[in-house]
Measured scan of single mutants.
Amino acid sequence: ITIHVNGVTYHFDNPEEAEKFAQKMAKTYQLKMEIHNGEFHME
């Protein structure tokens, strides 16, 4: 699972971890999250 946050790329093997991380980042930084081709993009 690949997550892009403001141009920084994070890779996770565990989908649950990826989702937790994505939600935490979105909440902490008030980010808008989109999913493209199974990759999370946040800005």
Rank of each mutant, 00 (worst) to 15 (best):
V5N: 01
H41I: 08
G7S: 08
F12Q: 00
V5R: 01
T2G: 03
Y29M: 06
Q30A: 07
T28V: 11
A22G: 01
Y29E: 14
E34T: 14
N37M: 07
H11K: 09
H41M: 05
N14P: 01
T28I: 14
H4C: 15
M25D: 00
L31W: 05
F21G: 00
E39T: 05
A18G: 07
I1C: 14
K20D: 07
M25K: 00
K24D: 08
E34G: 04
K27L: 12
A26C: 15
I1N: 02
Y10G: 00
F12E: 00
Q23H: 07
A26T: 03
K20P: 01
N14R: 08
G38P: 02
Y10T: 01
E39C: 14
V5K: 01
V8I: 09
F21I: 01
E39W: 07
E43M: 14
A26Y: 13
Y10A: 01
A22L: 05
Q30E: 11
V5Q: 01
E17S: 10
F21A: 01
N14S: 08
P15R: 12
I35F: 11
D13F: 10
G38T: 03
E17Y: 05
K24R: 12
A18H: 01
N14E: 05
P15Q: 07
G38W: 06
F21T: 00
N14F: 08
H4V: 06
I3F: 06
N14Q: 07
L31F: 08
M33I: 14
V8W: 13
L31R: 01
A26E: 09
H11L: 07
A22I: 13
N6P: 02
F40I: 14
I1F: 08
A26D: 06
M33E: 03
H11T: 08
M25G: 00
K24P: 00
H41P: 02
Y10F: 11
I1G: 02
T9K: 13
N6I: 14
V8K: 13
F21P: 00
Y29T: 08
E19W: 15
Y29H: 13
H36S: 05
N6D: 09
V5A: 06
M42G: 03
K27A: 12
V5E: 01
M33V: 13
G7D: 05
F40K: 03
V5P: 00
T9A: 13
A22E: 01
T9D: 02
E19F: 14
G7P: 00
H4W: 12
E39Q: 09
M25C: 14
E16G: 07
V8D: 07
E17L: 10
H11W: 11
L31V: 12
V8A: 09
K24Q: 11
P15T: 09
I1Q: 04
E19Q: 12
H4R: 08
M42R: 03
H11Q: 07
T2K: 12
T2S: 08
Y29R: 03
E34L: 12
H36F: 10
F40E: 02
A18S: 02
P15H: 09
E19T: 12
E17M: 08
F21L: 01
M25E: 01
K27G: 03
V8N: 09
E17W: 07
I35H: 03
M42K: 03
M33R: 00
G38F: 06
T9S: 10
I35A: 03
E19M: 14
V8M: 10
M42D: 03
E17V: 07
M33W: 12
E16T: 08
N37P: 02
M33G: 02
E17G: 03
F40G: 02
K32V: 14
M25F: 03
H11C: 15
G38N: 05
G38V: 02
D13Y: 11
K32C: 15
N37Q: 05
A22R: 08
I3Q: 00
A22D: 00
E19S: 10
I3L: 05
A22F: 04
K20N: 07
E17K: 09
L31H: 07
K24T: 09
K20G: 04
N6K: 13
F40P: 03
M33N: 01
M42C: 13
Y10K: 01
D13M: 10
V5H: 03
Y29F: 06
F40Y: 12
L31Q: 05
K24I: 13
F21D: 00
M42N: 02
H11I: 08
N6S: 08
A22T: 04
T9Y: 05
A22M: 10
M33C: 15
A18E: 00
T28P: 01
M25H: 01
P15I: 12
P15Y: 12
F21Y: 02
Q30G: 13
H41L: 06
I1T: 05
K20R: 10
A18K: 02
K27M: 11
E16Q: 08
M42S: 03
H41T: 05
E34N: 08
K27Q: 11
E17P: 02
I1P: 02
I3Y: 05
Q23I: 12
T9G: 09
K24Y: 15
E34Q: 07
F12T: 00
D13P: 10
V5Y: 06
E34C: 15
E39R: 04
G38K: 04
A26R: 09
E19K: 12
H11N: 06
K27I: 12
Q23S: 08
I1W: 12
T2V: 09
F12M: 01
Y29I: 04
E34A: 07
E16N: 07
T9C: 15
E19G: 07
T9I: 10
P15K: 10
Q23Y: 12
E19P: 00
H36W: 11
K32D: 12
G7W: 13
F40H: 04
H11P: 01
E17H: 06
H36K: 12
K20V: 10
K20M: 10
I35D: 03
G38R: 02
V5F: 11
D13E: 09
E17Q: 07
K32Y: 14
T2L: 11
E34F: 15
F21V: 01
H41C: 14
T2Y: 13
Q23G: 02
A18Y: 02
E39H: 10
N37R: 03
A18C: 14
G38M: 04
E16K: 10
H11R: 09
F40N: 03
A18Q: 01
